[in-house]
C-alpha cells in the first residue's frame, strides 16, 4: 500500500502543471498564515488624511488602495485566509457527510442503496448556486450560513464515489478475510474499505476546494453571500466592481488571486487523478513520444 502510494506521488511529481499548482497553493497559504504571525497587515486601517485613497499600485501600496484608503495587498492577503478556509472547510464537510452517506448506501446495498442514490441523483441535478441562494434565505448571509449552504451542495460527489468503491470492494477477498478474522462491520469499513477508497476521494476533494471558493466569491459578488466588513476575495471583487471604470485595480487583484488559486487546485486535482488512475497512465505511456 505504501509502495503504491509512493509511486503515485512520484508520478505526481513528474506532472509540471500539478507541481506548479501545488507550489502556488502552498505559497498563498504560507503568506496567509505568516501574516498572522508578525508581518504587519493593515486591512482595516483607514488612511483618509492624505490623498492616498483610491490610489493605483505604487511601491508603498503594491496593489493600490480602496475608497477608504485601505491597503489592498493587506486586504487580499487577509481575504486569502477567509476564502481558503471556506474552501478547505467545505472539502472537510463534503468528506464527512459524503463518506458517511456513501458508506451506508454502499455497505447496505440493494433497496436502501437504490433509494439513497436516487436522492443523490436528484440533489446532484439541481444547480448549486440556485440551492445555495435559496438556502441562504433561511441561513442568512454570515460565514456560518455560507459554510452550511456550501456543505449542502458539495457532498454528493464524494457520496457517489465512496458508494461506488464500497460496492466494488466489499466482495473482495481481503474483506471476506477481515470478516473471517472476526472484525466488526465498523472496523471493516474504517480500516479496510475507506482506506482503499481514499485515492479517488482525495481527487474529488481537491476539486471541491476550488468550486467552493468560486461559489462563495460568486455569491458574495452578486450580493447574496458575505458582505462587508467580512473580507473575502469575493467581497473584495464585489467592492471593486462598483468602480470598474475608474479604478480597475480594485477588482483586478482579488480576481487574479481567485483565478490563480482555483486554477492551481484544478491542476493539482487533474494531476492527482492522472497519478492515481492507472488507465490514464496507460494513455500517457502509449501516447508519449519519448517512452
Amino acid at each position: 500500500m505504501s509502495e503504491k502510494r509512493k509511486s503515485a506521488l512520484q508520478r505526481l511529481s513528474k506532472i509540471p502543471t500539478a507541481m506548479v499548482g501545488l507550489f502556488i497553493i502552498l505559497s498563498i497559504c504560507l503568506v496567509a498564515l505568516l501574516s498572522g504571525l508578525g508581518i504587519e497587515l493593515t486591512p482595516f486601517a483607514y488612511d483618509q488624511t492624505t490623498t492616498s485613497y483610491l490610489a493605483g499600485p505604487s511601491l508603498e501600496h503594491p496593489m493600490g488602495t480602496d475608497e477608504l484608503g485601505r491597503d489592498l495587498l493587506s486586504r487580499v492577503i487577509y481575504g486569502a485566509r477567509l476564502s481558503i478556509s471556506i474552501g478547505l472547510t467545505t472539502a472537510l464537510t463534503a468528506f464527512l457527510i459524503g463518506s458517511v452517506y456513501g458508506a451506508i448506501a454502499g455497505f447496505a446495498g440493494s433497496k436502501i442503496d437504490g433509494l439513497m442514490m436516487r436522492g443523490v441523483d436528484i440533489a446532484y441535478s439541481l444547480p448549486d448556486l440556485l440551492v445555495m441562494i435559496l438556502a441562504g434565505v433561511l441561513l442568512g448571509r454570515g460565514t456560518t450560513g455560507i459554510l452550511i449552504a456550501l456543505g449542502l451542495v458539495s457532498w454528493m460527489g464524494t457520496a457517489r464515489l465512496v458508494r461506488g468503491q464500497f460496492l466494488q470492494l466489499k466482495n473482495e477477498e481481503f474483506i471476506e478475510a477481515a470478516y473471517a478474522q472476526g472484525q466488526s462491520s465498523v472496523n471493516v469499513i474504517l480500516k479496510h474499505l475507506l482506506p482503499n477508497a481514499l485515492g479517488p476521494i482525495i481527487v474529488a476533494l481537491t476539486f471541491t476546494v476550488p468550486s467552493a471558493i468560486l461559489s462563495e466569491s460568486t455569491l458574495s459578488f452578486i450580493g447574496l453571500g458575505l458582505s462587508p466588513p467580512a473580507c473575502s476575495w469575493g467581497t473584495l471583487a464585489s467592492d471593486g466592481w462598483r468602480s470598474l471604470r475608474a479604478h480597475p485595480h480594485l477588482i483586478f487583484f482579488p480576481s487574479l488571486f481567485i483565478f490563480l488559486t482555483v486554477l492551481s487546485f484544478n491542476f493539482l486535482g487533474d494531476g492527482l487523478r492522472d497519478a492515481l488512475d492507472p488507465r490514464t497512465r496507460l494513455d500517457k505511456f502509449k501516447g508519449g513520444s519519448g517512452h
Partner: peptide, 18 residues
C-alpha cells in the same frame, strides 16, 4: 479548458466589459 473552468463568470464579465 482548465482556464475556462477556473475563471469565475464575474471576472470574465468584468474583463470583457473593461
Amino acid at each position: 479548458s482548465t482556464l475556462g473552468v477556473s475563471v469565475p463568470g464575474f471576472v470574465i464579465g468584468a474583463g470583457l466589459i473593461y
